[in-house]
Design a protein around this nucleic acid. Structure first.
Length: 646
RNA sequence: GCUGUUGUAGCUCAGUGGUAGAGCACUUCCUUGGUAAGGAAGAGGUCACGGGUUCAACUCCCGUCAACAGCUCCA
């Protein structure tokens, strides 16, 4: 048979040759390092015989395919260890994930705790040292059911029953045989370093109505050094946690007295957030938006009309009752009904559209207690919300303009690693959504077309749409790789109908506008959280709460320091003075840790010449210059940044 | 909401069945120092909250609340 290599070269091998043998034929070094292979672009076991002409790619550790196989095999090793340590344990699923793997198990009456993980790790290492191979076997569905049935593996049997008739594969590692598609590494002897990271509950098949299994997470490496490096990396990532930096830099706080999930914005955090809001307001003004303001509550009927109450009412903050008339008001969970009412205040002509109403609107949602997380998931938050009311023929253009705003935001803040997701409705579950099929089809195709037009590589997810319309979301990862949704754009034909929004067309007839809900930041809370983790608290000069700190060498120069600060303040440069009774080295260290971009050191020489000694955060001494000279540099740097998006 | 873990000073964390400790931060004093931690003294805690066991609970048990990791959810 002919085997084609990635470089295009072709070699002849006997039928039945394995990927591993092919690697050996190239070099023994390669054979040692290779973990998996791709045959005709499908990942295979190295030990699986190849019987026909094919292309081959050999995967070493650096390839995702190799890591995936390695971690998948590690999950089997974990299962083997658990089976030996907890007889009668039942197995759910055990896949490889982005970094590492997990296995879902049902240990019956026994509880597996975090404290047990070290013993399980030791067992895994012991089993790995046996150098067992992972052996692939093809069996029929009935054989599989018989095998796992005899072992009371109810979860495995359920999985098998859901499979198509035909060949089913199993893999055997030592005493443990698992239902598994593969592929795997040839032997667990390659697994040299193991860290079981956490144990947590996970519903069987992700269904909260079904049993909660025990999920054990872990990660493994072929070299001990790699695990050490990974652990150091995780430690570094934790230092960027926005909850930690938020406290250190006094940006925000939570108070038990105020309540869970209700953030308090401290002065410095507020300064940062306000600057972001002002930046967006300026961009939106250029894009023809108008700012509005609406109250934090509204009559319950508003959300009955919108459909939100039927869908989320039960799980929300409950209505406020007026003492006399017994009327019901809701803390607003959404701004759209208020904005619809603003639209209705004056009759609209087709010439008025699009109407773009923007508001930094604070909303309240009763998130489940287990969901609260720093600033990323809270119960009271401010959306950088806007609703665009437009004619159907303007929809695509408006959608594209919103995409432009989001791209400006991401560019301005140097967000490079974001992903886009198109969320459509689940075609098999249409009753979960409101609105006509026709409107859904129109909205969904509008989004898909807009993405195509922009050449945006967006992942399509069925069943992820909001109940009133499809959406395009922009996701960014946090310090330890969790994905958060930031910007969102949603097309909506339903609310205009429910609120009976109209405009008079060219034909002098009443027409229904289309609505776009959009929030480029998403929520100020979540965006600031992700920005903190992204920058590690080293905010860009134009955003940072304190841009400059003046450090007098001794108390003799405190007065001059104040004078410098005053001069800079007049130029709208945010400047503080560190006049503590400390040595200059100490002041530098402390302000370095506070991540203030510029330190101005002033002593005898500077005082005499009307100068400052400039020190840049993270870079060190930049020499002395006149105060006016310094303020010009700062002002220009900030203006340059802001103006490029104007 | 579910599973597991945790809760001791503003922060990071020790600690024990006999009513509490460190470092940093804070206050005062000394020092007036030139590019990442000067020195001394002091103040600060209902050991999350509520029950129970015990002669005695911060420590053991139960419950509540909150935080953390994950699951589910996310208009």
């Amino acid at each position: 048979m002919k085997v084609t290599f990635p470089d295009g070269s072709v070699r002849e091998f006997a039928s039945g040759t394995t990927g591993l043998q092919i690697a050996e034929s190239i070099s023994s070094r390669l054979a040692q390092e290779v973990l998996a292979c791709s045959i005709n672009n499908e990942v295979w076991d190295l030990t699986r015989p190849i019987n026909q002409d094919c292309t081959i790619k050999l995967h070493k550790w650096d390839d995702e395919e190799a890591k995936h196989a390695f971690w998948h095999s590690s999950a089997h090793l974990l299962a083997e260890a658990l089976q030996e340590m907890y007889p009668g344990i039942q197995f759910g699923i055990g896949p490889a994930i982005e970094s590492g793997f997990y296995y879902d198990v049902d240990p019956g009456e026994t509880v597996i705790k975090e404290g047990d993980l070290a013993a399980i790790e030791a067992k895994m290492l012991e089993l790995a040292a046996k150098k067992d191979s992972l052996i692939r076997r093809d069996i029929t569905k009935s054989e599989a059911l018989k095998y796992f049935g005899e072992r009371d593996e109810t979860y495995k049997c359920e999985l098998i029953n859901d499979l198509e008739d035909g060949t089913i594969t199993t893999y055997t590692l030592g005493s443990f045989t698992d239902l598994c598609r593969g592929p795997h590494i040839p032997s667990t002897e390659e697994i040299k370093a193991i860290k079981l990271t956490s144990v947590a509950g996970a519903y069987w098949r992700g269904d909260e109505k079904r049993k909660m299994l025990t999920r054990i997470y872990g990660i493994t490496f072929p070299k001990k050094k790699m695990l050490d490096e990974y652990l150091v990396l995780m430690e570094e990532a934790k230092k960027r946690d926005h909850r930690k930096i938020g406290r250190e830099l006094e940006l925000f706080a939570f108070s038990q007295a105020v309540g869970p999930g209700l953030p308090l914005w401290l002065p410095k955090g507020t300064a940062l957030r306000t600057r972001l809001e002002d930046f967006l307001k300026r961009i939106q003004k250029n894009f023809g938006y108008q700012q509005v303001m609406t109250p934090h509550i509204g009559q319950k009927e508003l959300w009955v009309t919108s459909g939100h109450y039927a869908k989320y009412g039960k799980d929300s903050f409950q209505p406020i009752h007026t003492p006399q008339e017994g009327e019901e008001f809701l803390l607003k969970p959404m701004n759209c009904p208020h904005h619809c009412e603003i639209y209705k205040v004056t009759p609209k002509s087709y010439k008025d559209l699009p109407v773009r109403l923007a508001e930094f609107g604070t909303v309240y949602r009763y998130e489940q207690s287990g969901e609260l997380h720093g600033l990323t998931r809270v119960r009271g938050f401010t959306q950088d919300d806007a609703h665009i009311f437009c004619r159907p023929d303007q929809l695509k253009e408006e959608f594209l303009k919103v995409m432009d705003i989001i791209s400006i935001i991401f560019k301005a803040l140097n967000f490079e690693n974001w992903e886009a997701q198109i969320s459509l409705r689940d075609p098999n579950n249409k009753e979960k959504y409101i609105g006509s099929d026709e409107n859904w089809e129109k909205s969904e195709s509008a989004i898909v077309e807009a993405c195509q037009e922009k050449g945006l590589n967006a992942k399509v997810e069925l069943g992820e749409a909001a109940f009133y319309g499809p959406k395009l979301d922009f996701m960014v990862k946090d310090a330890i790789g969790r994905r958060w949704q930031l910007g969102t754009i949603q097309v909506d034909y339903n609310l205009p109908e429910r609120f009976e929004l109209e405009y008079t067309g060219e034909d002098n007839q009443k027409h229904r506008p289309v609505m776009i809900h959009r929030a480029p930041f998403g929520s100020m809370e979540r965006f600031v959280a992700v920005l903190i983790e992204h920058t590690g608290g080293k905010f860009p000069l134009w955003l940072t709460p304190d841009q400059v700190v003046v450090l007098p060498i001794s108390e003799k120069f405190n007065e001059y320091a104040q004078e410098v600060a005053k001069t800079l303040d007049k130029q709208d440069i945010r400047c503080i003075v560190d006049d503590r009774n400390e040595k200059i080295g100490r002041k530098i260290r402390d302000n370095e840790l506070k991540r203030i971009p510029y330190m101005l050191i002033v002593g005898e020489k500077e005082f005499e010449n009307g100068e400052v000694a400039v020190r840049k955060q993270g870079e060190g001494d930049k020499g002395t210059m006149k105060v006016a000279n310094f303020s010009d540099i700062i002002t220009q740097e900030v203006e340059k940044m802001i103006n490029q998006f104007n």
